[in-house]
Nucleic acid binder design. Structure first.
Length: 257
DNA sequence: ATGGCGCCACATTGGCGA
């Protein structure tokens, strides 16, 4: 199966690109972030017409997550259980026997912002929930926009970004805690070209100059990682007219029947 | 020069993203 995560930065604007992505890449499951749509405005009919099902949790203007899948999603959970949060950033569902967890992790804005401790607390809640969830789901994939570049290899200019939000030690420590739960970074299971990123600033020709960060990830439990045959970042989607600032992250998994 | 781009909304400017 092919699974993907993509921060679309407004599904209203990016719907034609999503439909193109579904048609040309033929993924089985796609986790979307930053749909920026209330549920009553979600383009369910267009996605279903493309042969997919979809579950979603959205709000006006900001955030919003969705899981698009060929197969039906069951046991859908919106919001991290036990963590009170108005922001729609978390959606979990079981698809094809895999627990799919779609996350739009907080950005944090800057280390001195109120949004920064919220980001750390949000990750702590996610980690706490996962610890329990993993006991029930040996096949679990955590996909989305983590807003963390885990390593200096994931940063175009580590000196410029040193100690900034997205790379700070407390954030990277949260990412390491996810790995300590037994999850594996699918991208790093394979040899990868240097300076491969998933996000590039719209400004200053960030994409043309490849001034980016790798902040979108697909983490897999051991049984899925063992069955993972490829993990890539689909840079071509960033080359389109009016692109999202994020490119989709893709993992291919060959599970025994 | 702390800007630069893109998206959204009680819009023609400000909040936010990363």
């Amino acid at each position: 199966m092919k699974i993907a995560a993509w921060n679309v930065n407004s599904l209203k604007v990016r719907l034609p690109q999503l439909l193109d992505f579904l048609a040309t890449r033929q993924p089985d499951t796609v986790c979307l972030q930053e749909t920026k749509l209330t549920d009553d405005n979600f383009p369910r009919a267009e996605i279903e017409a493309a042969g997919y099902r979809v579950v979603f949790a959205g709000q006006k203007t900001y955030n919003g997550v969705a899981i698009v899948s060929r197969s039906e999603a069951s046991d859908v959970v919106a919001g991290i259980p036990g963590f009170a949060d108005e922001q729609k950033r978390f959606l979990a569902a079981t698809v094809d026997g895999v627990r799919v967890v779609c996350v739009y992790c907080p950005n944090g804005q800057s280390l001195d912002s109120d949004k920064y401790p919220y980001k750390l607390a949000w990750f702590d809640a996610l980690i706490g929930w996962l610890k329990d969830e993993l006991t029930r789901h040996p096949r679990l994939a955590l996909l989305g926009d983590y807003n963390i570049a885990p390593d200096d290899r994931d940063v175009h200019d580590p000196a410029v970004w040193k100690d900034c939000v997205l790379v700070s030690e407390p954030e990277r420590s949260r990412f390491q805690s996810l790995l300590a739960l037994g999850l594996q970074d699918s991208f790093r299971l394979f040899e990868q070209p240097e300076k491969t990123f998933s996000w590039w600033d719209y400004r200053m020709m960030g994409f043309r100059r490849n001034q980016g960060l790798r902040i979108d990830h697909i983490l897999l439990t051991a049984p899925l990682a063992a069955a993972c045959t490829a993990s890539t970042i689909d840079r071509d989607m960033r080359k389109l007219e009016r692109p999202s600032d994020h490119a989709p992250v893709v993992a291919e998994i060959s599970l025994p029947a």
